[in-house]
Every structure is written in structure tokens, then in C-alpha cells.
Amino acid sequence: DVAEQLPPVLPEGPREESLQLVSELKDSSCSCAVDVSTVWWEAAGCRELRVVTASESAVSLWEPLAPDCWGKVYTWHLREIPVIQMIPLPDTCNLVCVALGELEIGEIRLLLYSSETDSSKHSLVKTGNIKAVVGLKDQRLVSSSRTMQEQQVEMVSLSETGGSKDRQALMPPEETVTAFAEVEGMREALVGTTAGNSVVVWNLKTGQLLRKMHVGYSYPASICHRAYSDSGLLFVVLSHPLAKESESCGSPAFRVVAFNPHTGRSAGVMFSCLPPGCAGRQGDVWDTAGAAVLTSGAVAVWDLLRGRCAAVLHPGPAGHWALARWAAGGAGLLAG
């Protein structure tokens, strides 16, 4: 509901009341949360949005019991390698995807659970030195992995039972791919950012690398979050985790950059700044809303089309916010 409730323009600056705490999930296991996500879940003919929380050694599925009240349905225990990230799979039902590893992702696993038989299983989708991964519509997962000699970029089609139906190799660029983003409205297009600050475009059906376009030197290590194709242009939402504050522009949290794939040229469209004096960001984008955790322990939310910080969620009595993710379909903002 958060995205729906955001006022269109806030000329006077951020307004805290535009984020409202809807409900709290309290985990009695005392383990530190590393990520949070949502998943569509179908049981007994009823499809609902459930919350998934991850600690280093366990992933828990929560269901809504009553308004503002959530109960833990099931916990998968993953004791060998720590969980470091959850990978949302848009429009996928009854499948939880997690990345495990130490500093880098070493494994991607699918977690399944049946309430009818009270049975669960894991299935291994990918191993290697995985640099970037994204879940796409239609149960597809794209990842880039690297050995000393070469980079592999691969799309895996997942079956409903947690297996891998099909694998399609994508042509790797020379530079390491650091992030992927689906292109809204174009099922067969995928964009990625590289360690050399380029945006690359693939054809997922053929595996072709269609275009490499330079982002510019202004902000190093740009990360793509989302892309939209419109009127022959590709609009890419980038975040800039390493950008320093400047007097003229402040610190960029997100930028929307328009690329012309036909010519490879680009132009900045919108610039979303961190609130003055703030630093640090771990960002997530849904539709045209960006959210990021700041080093102060606050969560900031931006309207990316207007370049406005629309809301700030300050640290609460329980402590500083450490992670923020949009729920599937923009149903809310999850913060941990």
C-alpha cells in the first residue's frame, strides 16, 4: 500500500507520515535477519502473498493469520553454507529462491514445501563464483559466474517442482556483469551493468549480446535495478553505491538514464539524491519507486520519475534499519 499512498509531489521535502507501519513479524529464534522477501503461495485453492525471512542458517515462510498478524508456517534449515540473499521470482508460486555463500554467491537453491504432505525439499540450481543473479517472469533465473579464464552468463528455466527445465547460454561481455535487470514490457530483453560501467542488452531467446553502451565516468560502479522500453528508448534505473557527495548535486541514490539502443548514446533523465548529510545505500526498486537503507539506520523512499525523496522511515526503538525490499506487486515495503 505504500506506493499507492505516496503523495505525487512533496515540495516541502520528505514527509514521515507517508510510511505507515502495517504489521510486525517477530522471530523468537534471535537469529539476525539477512534478507526479507515475499512470495506468492497457493494452498487449498487459495493464492496469497506470504513473507519470507532469511537468517544465515534458516529461511522461514510466514502467512497472514489475521489483519496485522503473521505466523511462521515452515522453516528450512541450511546449515552448511550461509544464506546471503533471497532472489525474488516475479509471478512464481510456491517457490523460494535463495543465494548461499561466504563473500560471494557460491550456490543458488530452490526451497519447496507442501502443507498437504508437510514435506519439504531443496534443489540446487547453480554453483560457481556467481557475481550477479536475477529472477525473471515465467520462472526464469539469469546468473553470471566467473572462473579465472572466462565468464559464463546463463538463463535457467525452472519447473514448478523445483527442477531446471532448460538452460540457455547468453553471450558474455568482456567485463564482469555486476547486476541484471528485467526490461518491463519486453519478455525477451534483459539488461545488465558491467564492472567497466557499461549497460549491456541481451536477447534472451537467442542468447545474443545485442549492444554495449557506456554509462559515463561520472559515477563508478553503477548497478542496474530496472529497465523500461518506451518509444524506441530504453530507460534504465541505476544506483550508485560508491558515488561521493558533491556540492552541486549532492549524493546520487538513483538515476534514470535513457539509452538509445539504435545508436548506443545515452542521456540522464532524472536524478534522485540522498537527503542532505546522509550516506550509504542498499537499494531496491519496484516500478517507479526506489527504496534504500542509509548508514544512519533510516530507510528512504523516492519517486524516481520525479526525483523526489517521498518518505523517510527513521530508526525505531528496536534499532537501526539494515535492509529494505519492496513486496511483490508493490504491496508494501519490507524493512528489517
Binding site: V201, N203, Q208, G232, N260, P261, H262
Partner: peptide, 23 residues
């Protein structure tokens, strides 16, 4: 963004680049 910044725009860029790019 103006066309002078970005160059000529093609609405069919995805199909055109797919036809030109190495398989």
C-alpha cells in the same frame, strides 16, 4: 531527451539489433 542528444530513434531496435548481432 532530444533526438540531437541520442541520435535517430528506431522503434524496432530490438529486432534490428537481433538481426545484426552475431548469433
Amino acid at each position: 531527451c532530444s533526438e540531437s542528444d541520442l541520435g535517430p530513434i528506431s522503434l524496432n531496435w530490438f529486432e534490428e539489433l537481433s538481426a545484426e548481432a552475431p548469433p
